[in-house]
Design a protein around this nucleic acid. Structure first.
Lengths: 219, 219
DNA sequence: ACCTGAACACCGTTCAAGT
DNA sequence: ACCTGAACACCGTTCAAGT
């Protein structure tokens, strides 16, 4: 008598996880996510996917969720923890640009709430007065997601290999110097800058603002 | 002999401007932008639009450009000017949520460069040391675009009339209090908050950070 | 319960043909 | 030079029919 494998163990059985994983692989591979292509890779018809996933929007959200993992927030100094947190998000989006676009678009996603929560706890640990906690955490989150969106768009629109600074510099060279004097001025500085370092400097700026406001409210 | 009107004066003549205007009207009306629907409204075939516009992406960019106007940056105190600038962008996106999504997605758009330039000039006027100018202007821009994207997504996904705070509060009530302690804590504060005020408070936070950093580098 | 795949109602874009 | 609209190559989603 043959013992039937439980469906969870059958290698060819479809599952939500298997679908999401395949979607992530497809998006990471640079292809557009399509139910037909996804179905073909999973060796089914497109209709089969709908048994496990409500629609494309939900699948995209689940894929982004899968890729921005809860890495344990490091203990210790809250300012250091916030920087680490921000860099983790930056690196995850750098590795999966499509997820960045997704986060910037669907702010009520569980992923975003999770990031917000982790930021907020460190803001509390920082000793920010209660009235300013929401504003402070929001500012950091918005900055992170803003950069995420930008970075994602840049990564997706530029041939891989070229650096963002090169593009910005090239673009700024063609600008009317009278109208875009500032942009042209700083474009030169871009050459030695690194997106990641730049991103972190912005986080530090916001942290400095939080510290300054805290100092004021205490006195 | 009949004098032929120049094509620019013919009422029914198609033009890039007329197409972009119709696209803006459609998007503001809450409909999805479609070449077929757009053509129908302009009483042509979809192919006609391609004579004036390269593709949908360009049309979307042009529509966003048309809606985020260069209102003259106010002279005077640079900190005040930056706040006004930020609020102008916020209000424009509040009025045209689809444009917010567009800006967050296509950072190399002329519109974004223009905003960046205007921010940068005020940062210079603020007396920020040269090395920090790019970082400071980027932080503000990223914050503004980040909020823009969030706000746009929220406005598009929520039934008009309901306030964002209500949604966030309702969502947070269903969260596991152990996992989302911070979010639940601040969700209560949301009731009396206003997105616009909240947005401005974040801008002030960054401005405070810039001021603090400047003070440090001087001493 | 889960899968299949044809069918429906759309898309953006192209292009021969017209004026 | 500019417009027309049929046609091409796709989409997401549904659903009767199968197992």
């Amino acid at each position: 008598m043959v013992i039937k494998a439980r469906s969870g163990e059958r290698e060819d059985a479809l599952s939500r996880k298997k679908i999401v994983d395949a979607a992530v692989a497809m998006l990471d591979g640079g292809s557009e996510l399509t139910f037909r292509a996804l179905a073909a890779q999973l060796r089914t018809g497109p209709g089969a996917i709908y048994w496990h996933v409500a629609n494309k929007s939900e699948l995209l959200a689940a894929a982004a969720d899968a890729v921005i993992e809860d890495t344990e927030s490091p203990a210790g100094e809250p300012e250091r923890a916030l920087r680490t947190l921000a860099l983790e998000v930056f690196d995850a989006i750098d590795a999966h640009p499509w997820a960045g676009a997704q986060l910037a678009r669907l702010p009520s996603q569980p992923t975003v709430l999770r990031i917000f929560e982790r930021i907020g706890r460190q803001v509390q640990a920082l000793g920010v007065p209660e009235t300013d906690q929401f504003t402070s955490a929001s500012a950091i989150l918005n900055y992170v997601l803003g950069v995420a969106g930008q970075h994602a768009a840049q990564r997706q629109s530029i041939e891989p290999g070229t650096r963002r600074s090169e593009v910005l510099e090239a673009a700024s060279t063609n600008l009317d110097p009278r109208v875009y004097s500032f942009t042209r001025d700083v474009a030169g500085q871009l050459r030695e800058h690194d997106d990641r370092v730049q991103f972190l400097a912005g986080v530090d700026l916001i942290l400095e603002g939080i510290a300054a406001k805290k100092a004021k409210s205490v006195s």
